[in-house]
């Protein structure tokens, strides 16, 4: 340090040293680009490039081998809007979402309340409710394909029925919903459990002192404190459910289900891309799904921001 002469002047030396060090610290970090470089190599290759490429392909009649590519303008999109299978498969994905999301939210919340309020064996409930989440989707598909078998399956054995769950249109999607609930509810359950554990105890103590009964405490403390996490669970579930593919396709052996009632949107894009080899068209309909998913995600962000503004007003 060449500034020793100034050491006796105010502000004290240590502060000066810290200040200049802080300045140098931020200057040296000017080249922080190296930190993000490795990520952006992969991100560029496997996210940005496919997005750009997909957008370009959606305006062409490209096939899987990539040759004979001609620019066709908006033809793919125009065709998609008139394609009944686009609308059918989109409806199946939306239908699945409408069924599965409310059920998951309710069951996850119930499980979390039960696991939170029992004193003993908490670890056991957690293990049981969460374990299916750890299984691969392909295993879920195979497992429930077996469980829903009309004559030898567990479901009919337990319920004493002989319903052909997987071969009639009226129950085909329900079967996928049941399998998905069993598989994924554990994740939302853990989110709710964590949220319940984060509610400060003193709120309950104060309410109890004020004479609130268990039901009132639940209504006025638990429910409002779970509002944020419910928003998060809803958003995550809607986004994931709109993109349903794995378990449905495995349960129906990569087919469209009885009377084509379980063909999901993602399944249809992949059929167009890999079975009909129409990469251009498949890219175009993929972007339709992207627009829907992005609208949901941005809509949630907009809602959150609005609520924050209201809260800070």
């Amino acid at each position: 340090m060449s500034t020793l002469a100034h050491a006796r002047t105010l502000p004290p030396r240590t502060a000066v040293a810290a200040d200049s060090a802080r300045a140098r610290w931020s200057r040296r970090f000017q080249h922080g680009g190296w930190f993000v470089a490795p990520f952006f190599v992969l991100y560029g290759l496997f996210v940005v490039l496919p997005v750009v490429r997909g957008l370009y392909l959606s305006f062409t009649d490209a096939n899987i081998s990539g040759d004979h590519t001609g620019f066709v303008g908006l033809d793919n999109y125009r065709e998609a809007l008139k394609d009944d299978l686009v609308w059918d498969s989109l409806w199946h994905s939306v239908q699945f979402t409408l069924y599965v999301v409310p059920v998951i939210v309710v069951v996850a919340l119930l499980m979390a309340l039960i696991a939170h309020h029992t004193v003993h064996f908490k670890w056991l409930w957690r293990l049981c409710f969460f374990a299916p989440f750890l299984l691969p989707s392909a295993v879920i598909g195979n497992l429930w394909w077996w469980l829903f078998q009309p004559t030898n399956g567990m479901v009919n054995h337990v319920l004493g029925l002989d319903t052909p769950w997987l071969t009639q249109k009226s129950t085909a999607m329900l079967a996928v919903v049941v399998a998905t609930l069993w598989w994924t509810v554990g994740f939302s359950f853990l989110l709710y459990l964590a949220a319940l554990q984060n509610i400060p105890h003193h709120l309950y103590e104060a309410a109890e002192l004020d004479g609130a009964n268990a039901f009132q405490r639940m209504l006025h403390i638990t429910v409002p404190n779970l509002r944020n996490i419910t928003g998060l669970v809803l958003a995550l579930q809607v986004l994931a459910s709109l993109q349903v593919f794995d378990q449905a396709v495995v349960m129906y052996q990569f087919g469209p289900g009885p009377e084509e009632s379980t063909r999901t949107f993602v399944q249809y894009t992949l059929e167009q891309g890999f079975t009909s080899y129409r990469v251009g068209y498949a890219s175009a309909i993929s972007f339709i799904l992207f627009i829907i998913v992005a609208a949901v995600a941005l809509g949630r962000m907009w809602l959150l921001r609005n609520r924050e503004e209201v809260a800070t007003r």
């Binding site: 290759l45 940005v48 490429r53 392909l57 899987i64 993109q243 993602v266 990469v279």
Partner: peptide, 19 residues
């Protein structure tokens, strides 16, 4: 990128990896 998933990007991602 949070809004893109392999389910959405499947086909163009495949052609990218193919190339």
């Amino acid at each position: 990128g949070l809004m893109f998933s392999p389910a959405i990007l499947g086909v163009p991602l495949f052609t990218t990896v193919q190339s």
